[in-house]
């Protein structure tokens, strides 16, 4: 467990109550050249979880204590997202539905087909790496957004709605000059070079244009 909060290195979390299976998964992941952490129970994993990094969780369904599906739900509650691969000895429809609804990347019967798990883990890592990057970007944008004053936020709203400075000034009952200053500050704080980029950032942040 060498992870720190600032660690961007992808990792595969392995949660299985069978020691031999854990060892095997670790060996497989090691062959991928990817870091891994193995836990014998969901509880142990949650206790040791140290923060978001690009990750793929490989968990068994039937375990002592918390099951793999419960773990999945717990992570959703905590707002922790990562790729999840659910392994099960017997895939039943209810188990499958529940796992997929919880956002599992895939549910595999074990023993799995050759390469299937390998590919799934790699796929899961790739997806989460992208998700992680998006998340990272979004949090940067969010920080930038938080640095805006309320007035500037209002101006941003109207800017991405496509209003001209004149219209904004009239709507906010300010001088055009004042609006222009705000605009400058918004571009600066959001580190955007163009209105188009600013709009893209707003979409990424989920800011819906306020179409009054």
């Amino acid at each position: 467990m060498s992870s720190t909060s600032a660690n961007d290195e992808p990792i595969v979390y392995i949660v299985d109550d069978d020691e031999q299976v854990r060892k095997a998964l670790v060996a497989l992941v090691q062959a991928m050249g990817v870091a891994s952490e193995a836990y014998s129970s969901a509880e142990e994993f949650l206790q040791m979880f140290s923060g978001r990094r690009p990750a793929c969780l490989v968990t068994d369904v039937r375990m002592l204590g918390m099951s793999g599906l419960e773990l999945q739900e717990r992570l959703l509650q905590l707002g922790v997202s990562m790729s999840v691969i659910v392994l099960t000895a017997f895939a039943t429809t209810p188990t499958t539905v529940r796992a997929m609804r919880n956002g599992a990347l895939t549910l595999m019967e074990k023993p799995s087909n050759d390469e299937e798990l390998w590919n799934a883990i790699r796929g899961g890592l790739a997806i989460d790496r992208r998700n992680y990057e998006l998340e990272q970007q979004r949090s940067v944008l969010k920080e930038r957004l938080e640095s805006l004053t309320p007035k500037e936020k209002e101006v941003l709203q109207l800017m991405i709605a496509g209003d001209a400075n004149k219209v904004i000034a009239r709507k906010l009952d300010c001088s055009i000059r004042t609006i222009e200053n705000h605009r400058q500050k918004v571009f600066h704080k959001m580190e955007a070079d163009s209105l188009a980029e600013l709009v893209r950032m707003a979409v990424a942040l989920g800011i819906v244009p306020n179409l009054v």
């Binding site: 031999q20 497989l28 062959a31 074990k110 799995s112």
Partner: peptide, 14 residues
Amino acid sequence: IHQPLHAAQLFAEA
């Protein structure tokens, strides 16, 4: 039974 079988398969792939 599945556990060791599964493990064996994973080791084989590794």
